[in-house]
Amino acid sequence: MSATLDLAARQRPVAQEPAVTGAAARYAPMRRRAWRAGSIVLFVAAWQAAVHYRLSLGIVTFANVPSPADAIPALWALLHSPKLPMHLAASLTRVLAGFCAAAVVGVGLGLAIGRYRALEDVLLPPLEVLRPIPAVAWIPLAILMFPSSELSMMFITFIGALFPILLNTIHGVEAVDPRLVATARGLGTGSLSLYTEVVLPGAAPSIFTGLSIGMGTAWFCLVTAEMIAGQCGIGYFTWESYTLQNYADIVVGMALIGVLGMGSSLLVKRIGAALTPWYRLRGARQ
């Protein structure tokens, strides 16, 4: 396999970037974090100003929208509510169950479809027909298919996460340099070793991109399912707040969904970066 790795090293262009040393290198991560935190502060300040001055853009008005100042007491009350652990545990369990199932099925099917044209011709067309169907359209069928609402909501998150993972895995497998595959076969690599030592490492960056996107869509689909079929969870809390006209709680629920989705997607991305040390993004990023 050393010849395979040598060929990959020769074929991969290495971008020449100016070296950053000294104090600039030490403070660059801190400066980026400051910019990111500042962008969030600026967004919240713009939101507060739009609500305070009842900004109206014609078809969009902020006259009835809760402000950040209204949401902070509601968030404080939720953090001290005994219902918060129940809502978080329910949503996290549903997301993780659906996402893990989607990861196993999506990566497995993607590796197979990406390598074999016969499987692509047989399996990909029906999957492409199912892919555009929105998650909300699956809810009535999921309720009929599964004996409990919990399983139906896990199925909705599974459907939401499956297709980004599947398509990114297929793309990653198809993007593997065929010369690497030919070299590995010329060295006598078996079918299983070809997958584990050439195809899977080559497709891993795309796979983890799909996993990160799939985690975000799993949260999106879970909220849709909880609004209709759930009795607890962050999505159910958000919808219940609307029906009870607790508008500040709607903002709190949306913020929790955003933070949980962003955090879980970032975690998947960091795990992917740790497991693919041979891959680094290259490009003219300023």
Rank of each mutant, 00 (worst) to 15 (best):
Y116T: 10
F62Q: 08
L130Y: 08
P205D: 05
H87A: 12
L192Y: 13
L260W: 03
T238K: 02
V41M: 14
F43S: 10
G210Q: 06
M154L: 05
L144Y: 13
G160T: 01
R54W: 03
H87D: 15
I170F: 03
R31T: 14
Q11T: 04
T217I: 11
L5G: 09
A184K: 02
S2V: 13
M254S: 12
F220G: 11
G253F: 00
L124R: 05
F208A: 00
P125K: 07
T157N: 10
Y116W: 15
T93W: 11
A69P: 04
F208Y: 14
P277C: 07
V51M: 10
P13E: 12
S56H: 14
G188R: 13
A103I: 05
S2F: 07
S67P: 14
Y236R: 14
R10Q: 13
E128C: 07
R32V: 11
S148K: 07
Y247L: 14
A255N: 05
V104E: 05
T276F: 07
A184M: 06
W278T: 10
D6F: 06
A19R: 13
R32E: 14
E150H: 04
R36Y: 07
I213Q: 13
L275S: 14
T196W: 09
P277V: 05
G283F: 00
S148W: 07
A97R: 02
H171F: 06
Q48K: 05
T276I: 11
S149P: 01
A274R: 15
S148P: 05
L124N: 12
L78D: 08
L267V: 03
W278F: 15
T189P: 08
A161G: 09
Q11G: 09
P68F: 08
